[in-house]
């Protein structure tokens, strides 16, 4: 005889009661293998379905970089004040894409997993978490491509490249936190999914993905305001890790704070929205 791990004692327990935080987290922890294995299975299955398979995870950001490089670097000339514009651009585009894709797909998980939600009881926070793990795993080869781009454009191998590992984890944490909040809002207000692309577009332009803030924004006070944007901070820090230069202390602070604050805040907001899967 097998039993599920969280079977209740012999007494009667209410089924429709929000488990206390401790128990909710325990229930998530019991399912940690799901959060690892599910993404591996999904990525593999997706690999079998497309002609180009998993390589889309690589091709997509690379094509974006090629397009931006042509128009902004070569034609409009936003490469002002940047030595290695291609690597500068790739760092920004890859990091921004990872953040946006993780937030967007995590926010949809409660809607896209109705099959599972209608069939099995489990803490629903497992879904955005699992999606974030999947996106993070898919981001690993993208980071490898970034190293390659750096090498091909004449950058030396830097010790600071090892920072990419913790940086991606901080990015994932920030993105999951935001994804939790967007997921909660989406369940009550489906239209959010239609607004999100516009919001992300705005953030994209405010994050200095395509141009160097230092070269284009003259006013020091305004330049400082950019550091309030965690997307900008994350990108700035990745550029430091890849390209070297002066350590951006403010960006590092913004990156760490956004990751450490958004995750628990997002988790709490999401959990308050339980139970999901109402009619």
């Amino acid at each position: 005889m097998t039993k599920t791990n969280d079977q209740m004692p012999s007494g009667l327990q209410p089924l429709h009661a929000m488990p206390p935080l401790r128990k909710y987290v325990d229930q998530l922890w019991q399912r940690r293998t799901y959060a690892i294995r599910m993404p591996l299975r999904e990525l593999r299955a997706r690999n079998m379905n497309n002609v180009l398979g998993l390589s889309w995870f690589l091709l997509n950001p690379m094509l974006l970089v090629a397009v931006y490089y042509t128009f902004f670097g070569l034609i409009i000339g936003t490469d002002r004040g940047v030595d290695n514009f291609l690597t500068f651009l790739a760092s920004g585009v890859f990091t921004y894409s990872f953040l946006q894709r993780t937030m967007t797909s995590a926010s949809r998980t409660v809607v896209t997993n109705v099959g599972l939600i209608r069939a099995i009881r489990f803490p629903r926070a497992l879904l955005p978490i699992t999606e974030t793990v999947e996106q993070s795993l898919a981001h690993i080869p993208v980071v490898a491509v970034l190293f390659l781009v750096a090498l091909l454009t004449g950058e030396p191998v830097r010790l600071s490249w090892v920072l990419m590992m913790p940086l991606v984890m901080l990015q994932a944490s920030f993105a999951l936190g935001v994804g939790f909040i967007l997921a909660r809002i989406t369940t009550n207000f489906r239209d959010l999914q239609n607004f999100m692309p516009f919001g992300f577009r705005l953030v994209f332009y405010m994050s200095g993905v395509l141009y160097s803030i230092d070269a284009f924004v003259a006013d020091v006070t305004i330049r400082r305001l950019f550091f309030l944007n965690p997307f900008f901070d994350n990108i700035k820090l990745v550029r430091f890790a890849i390209l070297g230069g002066e350590f951006p202390a403010w960006a590092a602070l913004g990156t760490v704070i956004s990751a450490v604050v958004m995750l628990p805040v997002g988790f709490t907001i999401f959990r308050r929205g339980e139970p999901y899967g109402r009619a």
Partner: peptide, 27 residues
């Protein structure tokens, strides 16, 4: 089965129920 919260009322059980429906494909 504990899957749909009731508008009013509560369900008590002495172990985790399992529902078998004409379910959509999980994945």
């Amino acid at each position: 089965a504990g899957l749909l919260p009731p508008t009013v009322g509560q369900v008590y059980a002495n172990s985790e129920p399992m529902l078998l429906g004409v379910a959509a494909a999980l994945r």
